[in-house]
């Protein structure tokens, strides 16, 4: 797995422009998702939660995508195919990407929990839905990330 991480670090340096573009997209969807999360509770419109989940799902996909596909002459080739004949297990590549997903989930859960604390403080009441919402975000982010890792194309 250390070899995969070294490869990722070198590849990120090589493709710094692509990683930057994906990063910008990730933060746009992340901010949108977190804003919609707040609006869900402030406006009390449950349907906004759906949009929030979609945005947060996209943010994790954009976070992982540059590690999963290679752009070549306008085509997208998945990283597992690129490293097909290299002495590295596909499972090790998966595991490293799963670590990136775990780290993303850790950070996003902190932000969403802080958001919920702010919501509870302002509304003056705590509902089970506040906890459910955090769990919902983590499930959506995790599922989106896993699907992206296993099926990058």
């Amino acid at each position: 797995m250390e070899q995969v991480k070294k490869f990722d670090a070198l590849y990120k340096k090589q493709e710094s422009y692509n990683f930057l573009m994906f990063s910008i997209g990730k933060y746009i969807f992340l901010v949108a998702g977190l804003f919609l999360t707040l609006m869900t509770f402030v406006e009390g419109e449950i349907y906004m939660a759906v949009y929030a989940f979609v945005c947060l799902g996209w943010s994790v996909i954009l976070h992982l995508r540059p590690y999963l596909i290679v752009f070549e002459n306008g085509k997208q080739i998945n990283i597992y195919k690129m490293l097909k004949w290299m002495p590295v297990r596909k499972e090790d590549i998966w595991k490293v990407r799963a670590e990136y997903l775990k780290e993303f989930m850790r950070k996003i859960s902190i932000v969403v929990v802080i958001e919920q604390i702010i919501v509870v403080l302002f509304s003056g009441s705590f509902a089970f839905f506040n906890t459910l919402y955090v769990i919902g975000v983590l499930v959506v982010v995790w599922l989106s990330g896993i699907i992206c890792i296993v099926f990058p194309s």
Binding site: Q3, K6, F7, L10, Y11, Q14, V70, F71, E72, N73, K81, M82, L83, K84, W85, M86, P87, V88
Partner: peptide, 28 residues
């Protein structure tokens, strides 16, 4: 890691130079 494969079907990063490919893939 103990086999050297030379073939048209081998896969390298076509947009990079030989040296860039070597630097990237040598980690394995």
């Amino acid at each position: 890691s103990r086999i050297g494969f030379v073939s048209e079907e081998n896969i390298f990063f076509k947009q990079y130079s030989a040296l860039e490919n070597a630097n990237l893939l040598s980690v394995f």
